[in-house]
Amino acid sequence: MKHYEVEILDAKTREKLCFLDKVEPHATIAEIKNLFTKTHPQWYPARQSLRLDPKGKSLKDEDVLQKLPVGTTATLYFRDLGAQISWVTVFLTEYAGPLFIYLLFYFRVPFIYGHKYDFTSSRHTVVHLACICHSFHYIKRLLETLFVHRFSHGTMPLRNIFKNCTYYWGFAAWMAYYINHPLYTPPTYGAQQVKLALAIFVICQLGNFSIHMALRDLRPAGSKTRKIPYPTKNPFTWLFLLVSCPNYTYEVGSWIGFAIMTQCLPVALFSLVGFTQMTIWAKGKHRSYLKEFRDYPPLRMPIIPFLL
């Protein structure tokens, strides 16, 4: 059985960083990364991007050496992705923050609204209902991160945790300040508006959870398998008939419901920014589905049925 020789060059300087002799033909890129780490321990596998061309796409960890368009002496180019952190850690951090930050404003801890309001309670029912909904949303997200989601990528750049936390924590503080303010004004149409908004919120939260469970069942634990998601017997998953990412559709719907319930401008802005970002993600995933699966359902749109 022939063996391969693998040289790894710096993608920027073309400097030879490592030479691997007698590499098995069936070795994966993940195994080559581990061998590279032995000579350069500062670059652990998650930091490494190996590619066939200095400006090309990163090879997948599961790619097999003998199936790549290389000879028995293969040249790979290395790029440092920077310090990495696990997706689970990032999600837990960015979701735990809003949960606790919101509660600080809800309980009106000292130095927020003035001494005479310390630890007082709002007289408006919608304020307490909003706290329950907000807390439920982020507790749900935390539990899904721990027990439901299966991540195709193990890590992301460390800098992302600061960007994500600034976004989630900042908006949580902004909306919580106004919703729990002693001078907060309840919704214009009173109980009817709150009940309608609560119904929207609850339905969308159930829908979002149902989609996450359906997506989880598509991917076996520990794998990166991708399949076309289809509706199940659960009615909340029937939205798969019309959109590629109904989890985002339901998520946006939840925040629209919360915005109607609280009639709070920061919540509306958070919903708008979230919708914009999720639309970008949904379009990317939709394109990926179309590219990977020739039999992908043609009627589906990325996030909004028939429109977007």
Rank of each mutant, 00 (worst) to 15 (best):
D21F: 01
I101L: 00
T225V: 05
K16C: 13
K33A: 12
I256L: 09
L290V: 08
N208K: 08
G222M: 15
K67T: 13
H212E: 14
P69L: 08
Q42K: 03
P229V: 15
L104K: 09
I228L: 10
F275L: 09
L65R: 04
R51W: 04
T28D: 01
S49L: 06
A96T: 10
L99K: 03
T28L: 04
V127D: 05
H40G: 02
A191Y: 01
V127N: 06
C18F: 11
F105T: 13
R51Y: 04
Y178A: 05
N180V: 12
L103E: 07
L99W: 10
H212M: 02
F105P: 05
S122C: 04
S135T: 13
I179P: 04
S86R: 02
G56K: 04
P297R: 03
G253A: 04
D53G: 10
C264L: 09
G114N: 13
Q42P: 09
L68M: 06
L242A: 02
T93K: 07
T37R: 01
I203F: 05
L218W: 15
K12W: 13
F236A: 02
R150L: 08
Y230H: 11
R123G: 14
F209G: 00
I211F: 03
G154H: 05
I85F: 08
Y230Q: 01
V127E: 07
S288G: 11
L52V: 00
G114C: 08
Y230A: 15
F293P: 02
T125E: 12
H137Y: 05
T13R: 15
N180D: 03
N234I: 11
E5M: 13
K16Y: 10
K195S: 15
A30Q: 01
T28Q: 15
C131R: 05
T75W: 01
N164T: 01
I228H: 15
I200T: 08
I29V: 11
S86A: 15
D118G: 12
S121V: 01
L35V: 06
Y189F: 12
T145C: 10
L9K: 02
L183V: 13
I112S: 04
T185D: 13
P186L: 09
E7F: 13
L103Y: 13
E5V: 11
L17Q: 13
S58A: 12
R123A: 11
Y177C: 10
E292N: 08
K60C: 12
D217E: 05
A176R: 02
G154Q: 08
I132H: 01
K285N: 09
H124L: 12
R150T: 04
L198I: 03
H124S: 15
T188P: 11
D118W: 14
Q205E: 15
Y250H: 03
L272P: 03
Y250N: 11
I211P: 04
A74E: 03
L307P: 07
T166K: 13
D80G: 09
E31T: 03
C133K: 00
A30V: 10
Y248C: 04
I280F: 12
I8E: 08
E31S: 12
T145W: 02
T232S: 11
P302F: 10
K140R: 10
Y95I: 02
P45V: 00
R287S: 06
Y177I: 11
L242Y: 13
F78H: 04
E7Q: 12
T262V: 09
M213A: 09
R123S: 03
W169Y: 03
Y184D: 04
D61Y: 05
T225E: 11
C131F: 08
L92P: 04
L146V: 08
I32T: 11
Q193A: 07
H212P: 04
R51I: 14
K140D: 15
C245S: 08
I132S: 05
H134L: 05
A173N: 12
K195A: 14
R14N: 07
N160V: 15
F100K: 07
S223I: 15
Y184P: 15
S152D: 02
I304V: 10
D10L: 00
L99F: 11
P25Q: 13
V252G: 11
D10E: 09
R79H: 11
P187L: 10
E62K: 12
P298I: 04
P298R: 11
D21V: 09
H115A: 03
K12N: 09
T39I: 05
L59R: 09
Y184A: 15
R300G: 04
Y289A: 15
H26N: 01
Y177N: 04
Y289D: 13
A30D: 02
I211R: 00
T73M: 10
D21N: 11
N164A: 04
S223A: 09
E62L: 15
S223N: 15
D10F: 05
F111H: 15
I200C: 07
T262R: 01
G71R: 14
G82A: 12
A173T: 06
C133Y: 05
A199C: 15
L50Q: 01
L290M: 08
D61K: 02
D61R: 05
I8L: 04
C204R: 02
G56D: 06
H134G: 06
K67L: 13
Q205H: 07
L59T: 15
V148A: 06
